[in-house]
């Protein structure tokens, strides 16, 4: 297990180093996220600065999901260039380590996006980010993990498919509907004026269960999916 985690971290570290040089993913993902929030703000925020109830949580999760999909499509795409994925698979590293490494890199990237996205949503949509910060962070962390765990698996599955860019959202979104619903409802339970933290904790439990199921499934199936 330690060997798998060590190899996974080496792969994630390499991905982050490549990203730090090209800054391709962070710029495109952030640009999309910020643009989406601005468009939503122009659409929903009234002249008296009031916002429709419940809009902040929906906008936060929709923006996160769509911008995350951009990051996911490129996760394995980079390894296709110069066939470096084959180089990874030729190494004595266990297949789950390759999956976990990719997942770690996507999670760190999305965490970077959330650092900008969450305060921006709070600012435009008057969301009370400080009401239950740890619970909100836990919802975001587990929701992002669930989204990225499934998305990374599908990205691996589609790496050799010709129309992978189109197929990824088509196969990903139906599966992650529970994540989006739990994230939106849990976050909304924190953001509403009559905050109900027990409800938020219930949705958090749902997300933890989803993560456990899909992460186990992904680690179990990624070997054959990554093979030739």
């Amino acid at each position: 297990m330690i060997g798998v985690l060590r190899s996974a971290w080496l792969i994630a570290e390499k991905d982050l180093r490549v990203e730090s040089r090209s800054r391709e993913l962070i710029y495109t993902t952030l640009f999309f996220a910020v643009t989406a929030v601005l468009i939503f703000a122009f659409s929903f925020v009234q002249e008296d600065s009031s916002v429709p109830a419940g809009s902040a949580s929906g906008i936060l999760w929709v923006t996160l999901t769509f911008s995350g999909t951009i990051a996911l499509t490129r996760t394995f795409e980079r390894e296709r260039e110069h066939d470096t994925l084959r180089g990874l698979l030729l190494s004595p590293v266990e297949r789950p380590a390759v999956y976990l490494g990719k997942l770690m890199a996507v999670l760190l990237l999305l965490a970077g996006v959330e650092v900008v996205l969450v305060p921006l949503t709070g600012l435009f949509f008057q969301a009370p980010l400080g009401r239950a910060p740890w619970l909100l962070a836990a919802l975001l962390a587990t929701g992002t993990l669930g989204f990225a765990a499934v998305g990374t698996l599908f990205a691996a599955m589609l790496v050799r498919a010709r129309s992978r860019d189109v197929l990824l959202p088509v196969v990903l979104f139906p599966i992650i509907v529970p994540v989006i619903i739990a994230g939106v409802r849990g976050t909304n339970a924190i953001f509403t004026p009559e905050a109900d933290l027990a409800v938020a904790r219930m949705w958090l439990g749902m997300l933890v269960s989803f993560d456990a199921v899909f992460l186990s499934l992904a680690l179990w199936t990624c070997g054959p999916l990554l093979g030739e």
Binding site: K14, V18, R21, E81, H82, T84, R86, G87
Partner: peptide
């Protein structure tokens, strides 16, 4: 096993 493929398995940003 060591393999040198037709594609070179190198990261061009590194």
């Amino acid at each position: 096993i060591g393999f040198l493929g037709h594609e070179l398995f190198l990261y061009t940003d590194l």
